[in-house]
Design a protein around this nucleic acid. Structure first.
Lengths: 240, 240
DNA sequence: GGAATTCTATACTGATCAGTATGATGCGGG
DNA sequence: CCCGCATCATACTGATCAGTATAGAATTCC
């Protein structure tokens, strides 16, 4: 009836798989779950691009080439959309924890594996929602739920750090602050990965784990004493 | 005329100094700049508490016990408020860079000093705004300005890392990824410090710098081989 | 003491947007 | 061929909120 333009939409190169199950598909795949997933993925992409508050449900509907009531047919509220996106992201990390729990290797290696998955999740489609789902934007009930999931992950990291300190695979440190530092660095990936996709998520996660492991201080002593060239003297003020 | 309640307001224990210059101050300090600053600080506090989009200008005005047009007398738009808060936060870090530029110590130590200030800025009143000011919420012009300031800081960190690698005070690494990791960890402070103020900003910054410096891998070899106790076996699924 | 200036409040506008009321369409089974 | 379910669109409502028009109060300068 209407024209059903297959056209531009600029679907973004990330996961081109998730095309709309509506688009010109005459034989009506009537798989409710599949369509529901498509709605959630579309929401994640839009939130990722424009932020939660700058994305209207009409935008999400438009991205799927349907109308708003259709979206509401699959979810009950905008809030729920954000929540589902969050859960989708977090679930990847929880899976990583479960997988790692069985490995009989030093805790640092298990931690590295979790952090690697964490980084990939942060760079994923749902990374932004996972990281930015704010208590302030959600009802008290969902806010509590999200906090609890976040806390579970935080505690999991702390536990691995403590175990690592105990089994000698991790340098003694403050588990809480260390966990905050690690998680923070990884969460932040969700902020910049959108703009700078020069590396794959796996490469980024790998680079981060390397940094975490080694630290900045050189491992093999011997500060190379160097002619301290180009030591700038004070300059008054910069621009502005 | 109206009652001028001095009362609850729950000003938050952070920087109790910044009381409203209006409140019952009979002799009208007519320092425009002072009031303008108060407006910006109040905005920062409200944004910090509820997020940019969940804070109306009426809220900000109410926090100052004035009305909306009064706020507009000092700033031209909500957007500008966010921008000013951002700049206030970033300026602390730029100051740190300038201060450190003159020190004749290895680059790692200069980097540490900058990171320390960075952490304190993130935990400050303006931390949230500095970290969360999103391009998506701002006009193209301001968005560009913010990006440029952010980039300046990023480049500054990368430069220090490169210098450190060169002078041997920093373990060779990828400067870009390392800078992202460091900045990310510090930025994230702005997210959780609101909820968990068990440490002072300086303590947090110190703990983070320690983590960055040392890394997770033990410095003095010798994995303490331990009876691998309590290695849990796979459990089916967790709750949910 | 009055005019100019600076500051502030009351009350409105216009736009956006989450969520819905209502009803149309296609589909399968009888 | 018609009933009933699932799916979807058109068109509306109600609330929120950035920003403003207008007028009024306080302060300073002359």
């Amino acid at each position: 009836m209407n024209s059903r333009r297959n056209s531009p939409l600029s679907a973004g190169k990330a996961s081109p798989a998730a095309a709309s199950p509506w688009r010109g598909n005459r034989e009506r795949l009537r798989d409710r779950e599949l369509k529901r997933d498509a709605v959630i993925r579309a929401a994640a992409r839009e939130f990722n691009r424009k932020g939660y508050h700058n994305t209207s449900l009409d935008d999400i509907a438009a991205a799927l080439e349907v109308t708003k009531p259709t979206v509401y047919y699959y979810v009950t509220s905008k809030e729920q959309l954000l929540f589902e996106c969050f859960v989708a992201g977090v679930e990847q990390i929880r899976t990583a924890f479960r997988a790692v729990r069985e490995l009989a290797v030093p805790a640092r290696e298990r931690l590295n594996a979790v952090l690697h998955h964490y980084g990939e999740a942060a760079a994923s489609e749902f990374g932004w929602c996972m990281v930015r789902a704010e208590d302030q934007d959600l009802s008290p009930a969902m806010s509590r739920h999200i906090k609890s999931l976040k806390s579970e992950i935080d505690q999991g990291i702390r536990r691995l750090i403590r175990e690592g300190i105990h089994d000698g695979s991790i340098e003694p440190c403050d588990p809480k602050m260390t966990a905050f530092a690690l998680a923070g660095a990884l969460n932040w990936i969700a902020h910049w990965y959108r703009e700078d996709q020069s590396l794959t998520p796996a490469q980024i996660a790998g680079a981060f784990v390397t940094v975490f492991e080694g630290g900045l201080r050189p491992r093999r002593g011997a500060l190379r004493v160097e002619s301290r060239t180009r030591r700038r003297r004070a300059r008054g003020a910069l621009a502005r």
